[in-house]
Design a binder for these strands. Sequence first.
DNA 1: ATAGGGTTAG
Length: 708
Amino acid sequence: MNFNNKKSVLNLQRSLLLRIHHHRQYHFLTTPKQQKPIQPWTCISLIKQSTSLNTLKPIHASMIRTHLHLNLFFITNLITQYSSFGSVSHACLLFSTFQSHDLFLYNVMIQCFTANAVYDNPIFLYRQMREFDIKPDNYTYPFLLKACGHLRDIGLGKVIHKDVIVFGYESDVFVGNSLVTMYGKFELAEFSRQMFDEMLERSIVSWSGMIGAYAQNGLYKQGLLLFGRMLDERILPSKVAILNVIPCVRRENEADEIKKVVVDNGLDIDQSVQNAMIGMYSRCGRVDIARRIFDRIIDKDMVLWSSMIEAYAQAEMYIEALELFKQMKLQRIQFDFVTILSVVRACSVLASFRQARFLHGYVIRSLYECELMLDTALIDLYVKSGSLEYARKIFDNMSDRNVVSWSTMISGYGMHGRGIEALNLFDRMKGFVHPDHITFVSVLSACSHSGLMDEGWRCFSSMTREFGLTPRSEHYACMVDLLGRAGRLKEAMELIKKMPMKPDSGVWGSLLGACRIHSNVKFAELAAKSLFELDAENPGRYVLLSNIYMSLGEREEADLIRGLMKHRKLRKTAGHTVIEVKNKIYTFVVGDRSNPQTELIYEELEKLMDRIRKAGYVPDTNFTLHDVEEEIKDKMLYLHSEKLAIVFGLLNSGPTGVIRIMKNLRVCGDCHTATKFISKVTNREIVVRDAHRFHHFKEGVCSCGDYW
DNA sequence: ATAGGGTTAG
């Protein structure tokens, strides 16, 4: 970092040379002998007209014979062209053999590295320039700042920013725009904004860069606001401005407004804009509109198809996603690993083991690029379709694992209530890759799902102490969950109060969930108060609070909350349980009578409930909603979709098979207890996947212990 | 010669 230190600069130079050396390819000029000597005046146009490495190399060779390669002007043109063909090695070789400390040459070389995503070399070159006292100019900084941004090296970025000021380029529009983008990549949107505000001159790129910085940092409101201001100032939105503002759109009315701007400016014919609009509407919960846009596009490319599949996957419409993928194949449209990633994710939503096997085989046969990402997605798929063993097999066979793959496997163990194994894997991981924020979410939630209180705290404090990571709201949410499930609500509340940042909806949601288990109104009200502001649109929060009131017999309060919900036009997400029997998927809702075997199911259910009652099951009427007589309450519990699905599974599977069911919400507490008894009296293994995790029931116990 | 960009694993 210190440019005045001769020794460090020398070291840098040496390592730069080594790097460049690494790129060398010695035989690239062994082309057939050129027929005619090349003329200087045709040389540049020949270089510029070349369309590939193979047409460029002979030109280069003949330039060497006529000694044109000793001319700086020709060299820089060659480098630029090599760079545009992605051949960093040829560009490097030219640069390193041509001993000149010309500013233009350095700029071109820096540009070559940045354009080809080799982001640390521009920094070395810049340091070398400074050492040789070459004064950088306004063309140097945009590439350099871009490289800094990609490296996420904040310290370096700030040093170079200082240089920008020293050399007086801070008022250059290009340099200014690059600074805005760079700070956006550093997750320092407020710095970006400062740059933006201080700019003397702004172009459309400044506006879209700033909006993009907001979008990348989740500051959607600000992004939309700035976009609005841009329109107010009568600046015509560019395609990129639209693409940057679209991630900020989270509501349907906003989406409609953006769509109007798109149409008014004639940008709706652009395929990338159309594509982004598909994602936009699907994020707003309007997959139907997204689909309409998709259908209207005549000449659809691979990316559009992938986006639409991904849109379905995000909307949890996995059947539609898979159907679209099928159509894509039928229409013989090329697909790539991104498409497959969406398909795998679509399957993870309702993962059946059978589908997972099929997709896995498919991926193996297809030999895609990005094996790492695909393997990781498959691990997640197997985890979610209930097979930790297969997930682990993929994990063990991977030739390369990054922080995401480790975290996925750890969270897999956590989801299945195997906290100790999750922690063991975490320990092993430390020897290979550096854990990040999400790793800790996996580890901490693994602790909370298995009730590993001490280990949880130890990990939580090691985050900062050992790994220099500052806990975020998500981590506090895990800790509140851990304390809350264990009934230590007071401590959970104290932890929330001690948080250095404003608790988000996740934190309050954990507390509210714990209050439901342990029937605590006082803290529930506190949590709900914040949630109704932070996450006002989420119906689940209202239902939880109302259920807490109900379970304590406070009917009026409960009605009040239901009323509030109605007033805000929110509808409860209907709970349902899904079971796959003989390759067919069956869905049950509470009190369901749509199944052809309904009579048989209810008959069997009565018998089964009697059997488990004799074995000690006591219905927990805490989980009924209505203020009715005890006996009726018990019967209402029988109607829960979980129980119906389990009975259906018992009726329709062999005498020993594992029963696998899936609930879209959190599994009900009474059903959890009942399932324990069912697994005991029927001597069957039952696996329940709910919105958060898996419960493995065997011989009357659940893998989660009492940490429901 | 310069800045912003569509789908992408936890």
